[in-house]
C-alpha cells in the first residue's frame, strides 16, 4: 500500500483583490511508497511548497484527494512531521523545549521531556546548545532544531521544504548524510522539496521533476544508485544531464509562451 497518494490534485488560489485566479497545481497524481525518499524538484514558484502543504494538511486541494497511510488528509497532524522552509521555532522556548514541544502538548513531565529531547539534539549535533534560545542560534542551527523537532514526532511521513537551502556547502553535506542515515534507521517515508539537482540526486530514491506554473509532474525518475552517492560517477552525471535538459526545455517553452 502506498504511503502517500495524491489523486488528480488541482489547486487554484483565488485572488479576490486582483480578481484573478492562479492555477498553482494542475492535475497532479503521484503515489509515494512506504520507505521511499522522494525529491520534488522544480523552479521557484512552481508549486512545490503548495503541494507539500496539501500533504501536511495546511492547504486543501481545490480538486482531487490526498491520502496518507490510507486515510484522507483533512488537517495537520503529528503523523506527518514537517520541516519548514523557515525554521519556525517558538522564540520563547529554549532549544530543548522546541524539540520536545510535541511532548509538552501530550502533557509529559518536564524531566521526561528533557530526556527524550536529548537523543534528537545529539542526532542533529546540537549538544551544548540545549538551553539556547532561537535568537541565539545561527540560521543553520535553527534549521537543525526544526529537523530534530520533526524527527521526535517519529512520524510515518517526513515532509521537508528546502531545509538545507540556507546552509553552507560543508554543513549541507553533513546534514544530507545525517538525514539519509536517519531515514534508513527510522524506515519512514520522506518527501523532500529542493531546487538543487545535485541535492535531489544525492538524496532521493526517486525524483519528481515539476514543470513551471502551473505545476505538473514532468517526469518521475527512479534512482538506483548505490549509497553513499558518488557525485562524480558516470551514472550520477547521466541522470544530472537528463534532468538539466528537462529543466532547459521547460525554460525555453516558458519563454516562448511569454513571447507569443
Amino acid at each position: 500500500m502506498a504511503s502517500i497518494e495524491l489523486r488528480n490534485i488541482t489547486k487554484i488560489f483565488r485572488d479576490a483583490k486582483r480578481k484573478r485566479d492562479l492555477l498553482a497545481i494542475d492535475d497532479v497524481s503521484l503515489s509515494v511508497e512506504k520507505n521511499e525518499f522522494l525529491c520534488l524538484l522544480g523552479s521557484s514558484g512552481c508549486g512545490k511548497s503548495t503541494l507539500l502543504n496539501m500533504i501536511a494538511g495546511f492547504e486543501k486541494p481545490t480538486e482531487g484527494s490526498v491520502t496518507v497511510g490510507g486515510k484522507a488528509v483533512d488537517g495537520p497532524g503529528a503523523d506527518r512531521g514537517m520541516v519548514f522552509q523557515q525554521a519556525n521555532l517558538m522564540p520563547w522556548l529554549p532549544v530543548w523545549e522546541n524539540v520536545a514541544f510535541h511532548l509538552r502538548l501530550k502533557g509529559w513531565r518536564k524531566a521526561d521531556r528533557r530526556d527524550a529531547a536529548q537523543d534528537y539534539i545529539d542526532m542533529v549535533g546540537l549538544r551544548g546548545f540545549e538551553n539556547h534560545f532561537p535568537a541565539e542560534l545561527s540560521g543553520g542551527m535553527s534549521q537543525r532544531v526544526g529537523i530534530a523537532r520533526a524527527l521526535l514526532l517519529n512520524p510515518q511521513v517526513i515532509l521537508m521544504d528546502e531545509p538545507f537551502a540556507a546552509l553552507d556547502a560543508q554543513t549541507k553535506m553533513d546534514m544530507q548524510e545525517e538525514l539519509v542515515a536517519i531515514w534508513q534507521k527510522q524506515r519512514c517515508t520522506v518527501v523532500f522539496v529542493t531546487h538543487s539537482v545535485d541535492e535531489a540526486l544525492v538524496l532521493g530514491t526517486r525524483v519528481a521533476v515539476m514543470t513551471s506554473r502551473p505545476g505538473r509532474i514532468r517526469e518521475l525518475i527512479a534512482l538506483d544508485l548505490p549509497r553513499p552517492r558518488d557525485t562524480t560517477g558516470p551514472r550520477f552525471n547521466d541522470h544530472k544531464r537528463h534532468i538539466l535538459n528537462l529543466i532547459r526545455e521547460e525554460g525555453l517553452q516558458q519563454r516562448q509562451v511569454a513571447v507569443a
Partner: peptide, 21 residues
Amino acid sequence: DRNLIRAASMMGATEQQLLRH
C-alpha cells in the same frame, strides 16, 4: 506568526493548546 501556529498544529496541537502554548 501564522507559521508558528502551523508548526504547532503540525505537532498535533488542539485549538485550546494553540491558544495557550
